[in-house]
Amino acid sequence: MERLMTTEPLFTEDAYLRETPARVIAADERGVVLDRTVFYARSGGQPGDSGMLRWEGGEAVVAEAVKGEAGAILHTLAPGAALPPVGAEVLASLDWARRHRHMRMHTTLHLLCSVLPGIYATGNQIGAEKSRLDFDLPDPPAKEWFTEQLAALVAADHPTGTSWITEAELDANPQMVRTLSVQPPRGAGRIRLVRIGPEGAPVDLQPCGGTHVRSTGEIGRVEVSKLESKGRQNRRIHIILPE
């Protein structure tokens, strides 16, 4: 896999695609690179997707998608999995239940930012079972307050959407970046924005390359399970999605 070709990230435009036909452009012990994929590659605190690759005469479990070289997405396989032949046509299918929980969690973290205007996030981690967001916040409200605020935003069923701006436009509006630990990827000349709420009066608007639900109502019940002190001013807010 000396030379990797760019993978078309279909999830950027449609996070609800669960599978896609694709062609294998590289494969070795590190994993498989496809010309296109529905698998989100681990970044920005969101885990990489897992699922299956199926081709004529074989199949393999994808343990996690990660970023490769030069814009490639590397589908790392479970130990002992067979490699599809280079040039083969495969069907790439997500573990949709896991991905959808990541989408619900990720949108919830954006809502959490929205209830703390002007406060910067200092770290984050998204998981299917629990997630957390760290804030530079010396005296946070009680966890019950956060749960109530999030419940109201979920009940309002705000739509989500994406748009693109130039890197220069982001430089002119640095307040859009809400996280100190994760900066928007640069070099492509444009930055993807994720918006929650109407275009004219968004509830939240910030650079993000992750996957999100179509509207906040899809999140369902959310609960702030714990507030934790991680330093003099740093507070960690843990969230869960009770079923």
Rank of each mutant, 00 (worst) to 15 (best):
L83S: 04
T107Q: 07
H106S: 09
R132S: 09
G51D: 02
G45L: 03
D49K: 05
A70R: 15
V115K: 06
W55Y: 08
L77D: 02
P85C: 04
E129W: 12
M52V: 14
S131H: 11
G44V: 06
L133W: 07
R104P: 04
A128G: 14
A82Y: 11
L74K: 04
E69L: 14
G57A: 07
V86Y: 02
Q125R: 15
G44W: 01
E59L: 12
S50H: 03
G51Y: 00
G127H: 09
A60C: 09
L53Y: 09
L91P: 00
S114P: 03
A63I: 01
A97I: 02
E89I: 09
T76F: 04
A88R: 03
H102K: 09
G58Y: 14
G44E: 06
H102Y: 15
A92E: 01
S114N: 06
R54S: 15
T107K: 07
A121F: 03
T76G: 02
G51W: 04
Y120A: 15
A121I: 00
G44C: 04
L111D: 09
H110R: 12
G68P: 00
I126R: 10
L133P: 00
Q46A: 05
G45S: 05
M103A: 06
G71I: 11
A63H: 12
A70F: 10
P85F: 09
R98A: 06
K130G: 07
K130V: 14
L111C: 10
G80Q: 08
A60P: 10
G87T: 09
G80L: 01
R99G: 11
D95Q: 12
D95R: 12
T108S: 15
I119R: 10
D95H: 14
D95S: 07
M105R: 00
C113M: 09
M103I: 10
L94F: 06
H102G: 11
G44T: 05
I119S: 02
M105L: 08
G45T: 02
A92V: 03
P47R: 05
G80E: 03
W96G: 04
G57W: 12
V86F: 01
E59G: 11
G48K: 01
A81F: 13
A78M: 03
V66E: 12
M105C: 14
